[in-house]
């Protein structure tokens, strides 16, 4: 299987603080990589290095023709910024040179009502804003989705819906997914590989190997009890 992403000896420092140190892994096409780890272990920093918005050492190589959709954890938007969700999506359609029809398709995919999307983005409730960001990422048909805590702030039926959408897109379109999540049961269910970041030890492998109590305790530095609610019915 071809790799969509190859990362070799990736390092990121802020001043004297080395956040990522010599990180190497690769992501096969159409797979799902879950990135887990305690707060401050550099998960979001890793994403920013992957999309090239912060300086880093080492190598990040995307397969030729990769189109990246990025769903950030949160954005700081002024409440009275006069840009509506539709303005924002139309801007993406223009930049990605896709037809304005794609705006409707993206809204349908994430179950966001057009009248909600017509509100200023700073005034959207958390879950709706998250859906808007996902719609933005999905426009232009990305080959890779980078998801930072994708369903934080989305209610539970909404969360299930978003995951179902992503699974469907993944099956239809050879979509590769990189996912930062704190919900280990989700990781267990959806991930084909798990990358665990931690100040103490970094580990990488299939969920069955990584999501063991011993490994998790190593990574989080404290005893973690991880109960599988649904059992492994993922990939």
């Amino acid at each position: 299987m071809t790799d969509v992403l190859q990362v070799a000896h990736l390092s990121v420092s802020f001043g004297k603080n080395r956040v990522l140190d010599g990180l190497s892994f690769s992501v096969p096409e159409a797979s799902t990589l879950a990135i887990i780890g305690p707060n401050g272990s550099g998960k979001t920093v890793l994403f920013k290095a992957l999309i090239g918005t912060i300086p880093h050492g080492g190598e990040v190589r995307w397969a030729a023709g990769s189109r990246i959709g990025y769903v950030p954890q949160k954005l700081d938007i002024e409440r009275d910024l006069p840009i509506t969700g539709l303005d924002f999506l139309r801007a993406k359609a223009a930049v990605a040179r896709v037809s304005p029809e794609e705006v409707r398709r993206a809204l349908d995919l994430v179950s966001l009502a057009p009248e909600v999307a017509a509100e200023p983005i700073g005034a959207l409730a958390g879950g709706n804003f998250q859906r808007l960001l996902l719609a933005f990422a999905l426009m232009g048909r990305p080959t890779v989705l980078l998801f930072d805590e994708p369903t934080a702030g989305v209610d539970e039926p909404g969360e299930a819906g978003i995951y179902a959408t992503i699974r469907r897109l993944q099956k239809e379109g050879r979509l590769t997914l990189l996912l930062i999540s704190h919900e280990l049961s989700l990781v267990y269910r959806y991930a084909t590989h798990v990358l665990c970041l931690s100040r103490w030890r970094t580990c990488y492998g299939p969920p069955l190997e990584i999501l063991t109590p011993e490994r998790l305790q190593e990574a989080y530095g404290t005893a973690m009890s991880f109960h599988l609610h649904d059992g492994p019915n993922g990939p």
Binding site: K48, I51, G52, T53, I68, G69, Y70, P72, L75, I77, L81, I83, D87, F88, R90, A91, K92, A94, V95, A96, I121, L133, F136, A137, G140, L146
Partner: peptide, 18 residues
């Protein structure tokens, strides 16, 4: 205007949108 809008909302998103 489209590029300016995306860049002012989030430089990270702008970057991934090309």
């Amino acid at each position: 205007r489209s590029r300016l809008v995306i860049a002012l909302v989030s430089p990270d998103l702008a970057r991934t949108a090309g």
